[in-house]
Amino acid sequence: MRVGLVIVSHSAQLADGLVELAAQMAPDVTLLAAGGMDAGPDGVSGIGTSLEKVMDAVSGADAGAGVLVLADLGSAVMTAEAALEFLGGPENVVLAHAALVEGAVAAAVTAQSGADLELVKKAAETAFTPVDGPVQGGTGGGTAVVDPPAPSGAGNGAVSAELQLINPMGLHARPAATLAGALGAMDVDIEINGVDGQSVMMLMTLGAGEGTTLSVTASGSDAARAVDLVRTEVENGFGEL
């Protein structure tokens, strides 16, 4: 039983496209689009948002673990809020104040890992706060140019490793989601090339391609297990070889 997601956008195509994107990284999460207005007689959904679409999607996305709603702009947020009010303010349906694309992907990955609604919401809302990491990473799969954390800075009980990416696609979206999802379920503080290893968006900003060395530093009770997991995934080429 996983948290479901509803994407509310002014554009039906945008909502559908984002569902398609996020679903690729979260095959077991119910992701429903509520984009555009109700279809007119011509079958086309004009730009706008529809309470009915949002309410239907919220009902359909709830598998018992709650629903996170993400909305794109202004009136879409208002429609989402109004839908929750219309439904009587259910406790297990919440609206995230998040960047739509980054938030949806991060939420989907986190929901896929089995996290509860609060964690999924947090993943969405912190998906795009790149204060600690590179903003201008990943310009098309080149090697990452990021200062790795100094190994000596790792405290007691810290575990670190240097791992080279061997799969041709490198740390693209799916592997990033795999790592962030698995690491997110562990009790660990883990940095990979200076960014939070539990954040799919931050891992993707590294733009780490084949041959890039990942400097991994972890602390916390699951530190050894976490680094082992990263090592296994990297050495297996994320199952892509």
């Binding site: 004009g46 529809s50 009010e85």
Partner: peptide
Amino acid sequence: AAMTLMSKVGGAAGPLYGTAFL
């Protein structure tokens, strides 16, 4: 009126008038 406006208006007026009627 609330339900209909929130589903059919599209722009910000939909949820605003819809919420007013609700």
